[in-house]
Amino acid sequence: MKKEDEYDNFEEWEADSHFLDEKDWKGLVIYRRRKAEINPNDQYDQFKLGEAYVLNKEYEKAISFLSALHQKYANDQNIQYSLLDALFAIGKDETVIDWIIRPTVLRLSGEILDYCYNFLRTKRKPRTVYDLYLELYMEGYLAFDEDQLMDFLHSDNRFIFTGHDARSYDCFVTVNRKKCSVRD
């Protein structure tokens, strides 16, 4: 006989979404732990439990759980990135993990400025800083947020900004097409 609880009448995504919308991280951990126990060989359910530990700020538990998962599913970027989220949250970096497949971690640097410049110089229309952030997201784990990227781009005179400067999704950026030296 199947044990029923208050979430049995939900479709799977609805229960998960309910906890996320309510920011009920403890409830999310309980719900996802139950799913992971029911489906011990389901890679996605296992990852989701590790992610719930991160959201609930159980970073050490997340690191332990996700490290073991990484050993089994080394190429799963979701597992890698959640593991990095937990590590960075407690002030550690990626070097403390014995990675089977090491994720690419991008930090604000001259290389990021050059990447943004080279991406934008081929575009006729300005792009939002948020669009640039998403473009970088395709390249690896971003150890910065879109507002930090916007502030960093402001430090380079190769970029021109328009729009609302306080929000990355309203701030447009293009390259200065006038002759200027690299990172004056």
Rank of each mutant, 00 (worst) to 15 (best):
I97V: 12
R102D: 03
Q77F: 08
Q43E: 14
T95F: 05
D42V: 02
D24Y: 14
L49K: 00
R121I: 12
A52F: 10
I100N: 05
R32C: 05
Y117E: 01
W25P: 05
G27L: 11
D85P: 00
L87G: 04
L84G: 00
N39L: 13
A62S: 11
I38G: 00
D93V: 06
F88R: 13
I100H: 00
D24K: 03
D21T: 06
T104Y: 09
R124I: 15
I63E: 01
I112W: 08
P103G: 05
H70V: 00
I101Q: 06
R107P: 11
E60R: 04
Q43S: 07
L113Y: 01
F19T: 09
D42T: 07
F47S: 04
P40G: 05
V96N: 11
Y44A: 12
W25C: 09
R107F: 15
G27K: 10
R32H: 04
Q46K: 14
V29F: 03
N39P: 03
F65S: 05
Q80C: 04
N75E: 04
N78P: 01
Q80P: 01
L106I: 15
E60H: 10
K92G: 06
C116D: 07
K61T: 15
D24V: 12
D114I: 12
K57G: 01
G27C: 04
L69V: 03
Q46N: 14
D93N: 12
N41Y: 14
Y53P: 00
N78H: 12
D45N: 04
Q46L: 15
L106A: 10
S64L: 11
E94C: 03
V105S: 04
N75Y: 06
N39E: 15
I100S: 01
S67G: 12
T95D: 13
Y59H: 08
R34S: 14
K92L: 15
I90R: 05
S64T: 12
S82E: 10
T104N: 11
V54I: 02
L106C: 10
R124A: 14
L120W: 11
H18R: 13
D21C: 01
Q46M: 13
T95L: 07
H18M: 13
D93M: 09
L20E: 09
A52P: 00
Q43T: 07
S67A: 10
T104F: 05
Y81D: 02
R34P: 11
A86F: 00
Q71R: 08
G50L: 08
L28P: 02
I63H: 01
D114Q: 15
D114P: 01
K35S: 09
N118M: 08
